[in-house]
Nucleic acid binder design. Structure first.
Length: 259
DNA sequence: ATGACGGTGTGGCACCGA
């Protein structure tokens, strides 16, 4: 079973690239971030024509998330229950698979702007709420995957220039501690289960020829529940779509689970 | 220190992302 996450930075612009990628890289389910579409504009017909059932939760201009699967996801949740939020950042659903029902949570963590800002405080509150909710989801769904754009580079090896980025947004001790709190729930970073090429990133700035210079961050992650950890067969970042004309600034991340 | 690139909105630029 294969699962993926991709911050597409506007699904309206990236739909052709998404469909092309899904054709070349069949997955059982994928979560998308930054769709930037209200639900009435979501391209469910185009996706359905390609065999995808879509669950989506969007808004105008910013944010927006979706969960695509071959069979329609059930028990769908929008945003973090009990956490009042006017930003569309989370979609969760249960997807049928060879391993039985799989709880899939797709998340677009707040950017946070800068330490000390209001947006940073929101990012911390949001992550507190996510942590507590994921803990309760884990108690009900032993087979759970939390994936998306975390906007956190967990360690210095996830940053192209850790000295320059020290204490900067995505790299602050507070954000990294929040990431560790998720791991403390028993979740496992699938990417780090394996030897990986050094300088593996999932995001490169559009500016300064960052992709060509391979200056990026690993901020898109796939965390799996304890009962899935031993089933993780592979996890990789697919840089190829970043070479497209008009690419997203993020690359998809893929995990393969043994049936 | 700033802006650089790209997306969106009701635009002629501002805001936001990371």
């Amino acid at each position: 079973m294969k699962l993926a996450t991709w911050n597409v930075n506007s699904l309206a612009v990236r739909l052709p690239q998404l469909l092309e990628w899904l054709n070349a890289h069949p997955v059982d389910a994928i979560v998308l971030q930054e769709t930037k579409l209200t639900d009435d504009r979501f391209p469910h017909a185009e996706l359905q024509a390609e065999g995808w059932q879509a669950r989506y939760f969007g808004q105008k201009t910013y944010n927006g998330v979706a969960l695509l699967s071959r069979d329609p996801a059930t028990d769908v949740v929008h945003n973090i229950p009990g956490f009042d939020d006017d930003q569309a950042r989370v979609i969760a659903g249960t997807v049928a698979g060879p391993l039985g029902p799989m709880r899939v949570i797709g998340a677009y963590f707040p950017n946070g702007q800068a330490p000390g800002s209001d947006k940073f405080a929101y990012k911390m509150r949001w992550q507190d709420a996510l942590h507590d909710w994921v803990r309760s989801e884990l108690s009900q769904h032993p087979q759970l995957v939390l994936m998306g754009d975390f906007n956190v580079a967990p360690e210095d090896r996830d940053v192209y220039d850790p000295v320059a980025w020290a204490g900067q947004i995505h790299c602050t001790p507070e954000e990294r501690a929040q990431f560790q709190r998720l791991l403390a729930l028993g979740l496992v970073d699938a990417f780090r289960r394996f030897e990986q090429p050094p300088k593996s990133w999932s995001w490169w700035d559009y500016r300064n020829l960052a992709f060509r210079k391979n200056q990026g961050l690993r901020i898109d992650h796939i965390l799996v529940s304890p009962s899935l950890a031993s089933r993780v067969r592979a996890c990789h970042i697919d840089k190829a779509p970043r070479k497209n004309e008009r690419p997203s600034d993020h690359a998809p991340v893929v995990v393969e689970l043994a049936d």
